[in-house]
Design a protein around this nucleic acid. Structure first.
Lengths: 107, 107
DNA sequence: GCGACATATAACCGCATGGTAATGTGTTTC
DNA sequence: GAAACACATTACCATGCGGTTATATGTCGC
């Protein structure tokens, strides 16, 4: 684990891809259903799905002519881990990083 | 607040920019010092700093000929907020989202 | 005011990205 | 096995990005 966090950040920088993840957060969906929600052509959606697959943010489960896409949380967990050391900057804990809070209050 | 999360995701998708944030997490630094850590030309670093400034991830404090860059946590907090609804997918809490866990255990 | 210093901006380049229309591939149905 | 369906891939285009070198801008010391 913990390959690099570049890929997930890049993948999530596109609004359409974030929208797809949002839709898959509710439940698995076939491609056509995603297309119906996305103001994008079917190939456009397939292209985004390929990106999401390649960074491991979604998984596919073929079922006849349908391909059901589902969410994979692992890369998101890596982003969360990346964020961790920064989190104390805004969680009001003033241990060991007070100088940053100082900076904030002068802006 | 809560503009859009696209900008911070895009900004963080570059390793050099993440490295800069990492350096600024310790303390404020002038540009030259960042250049010294970054295998990049000075203009290259300045370009990345501009991007970080525009998305609000850093702030500048001019002091004579130096310009001291510091971290701003707000956009990171927005990312954290964006991640929130997904977080329960990997935190072992099996409330209301068991179907996702089901999916996970079949892979 | 002038040269040195610190940084920003401009101009340029190669490559990746996101979108589309067209086409290919696998599956179902009759 | 042929047509219809669901989806992926290809080919193409315009735009943006990250890098560099060259140059502009502002500040300090004398």
């Amino acid at each position: 684990m913990s390959a690099t966090v570049t890929a997930p950040f890049t993948a999530l920088s596109d609004p359409a891809r974030r929208r797809i993840l949002e839709l898959l957060r509710e439940r698995e969906r076939p491609v056509g259903e995603l297309v119906g929600h996305l103001k994008l052509s079917q190939p456009g959606v397939s292209k985004h799905l390929r990106v999401l697959r390649e960074v491991g943010l979604v998984r596919v489960r073929p079922d006849g002519k349908r391909r059901w896409y589902g969410l994979r949380a692992e890369p998101l967990a890596e982003l969360d881990a990346w964020l961790a050391p920064y989190r104390e900057l805004w969680t009001g804990r003033l241990d060991a990083l007070e100088h940053h809070l100082d900076q904030e209050e002068h802006r």
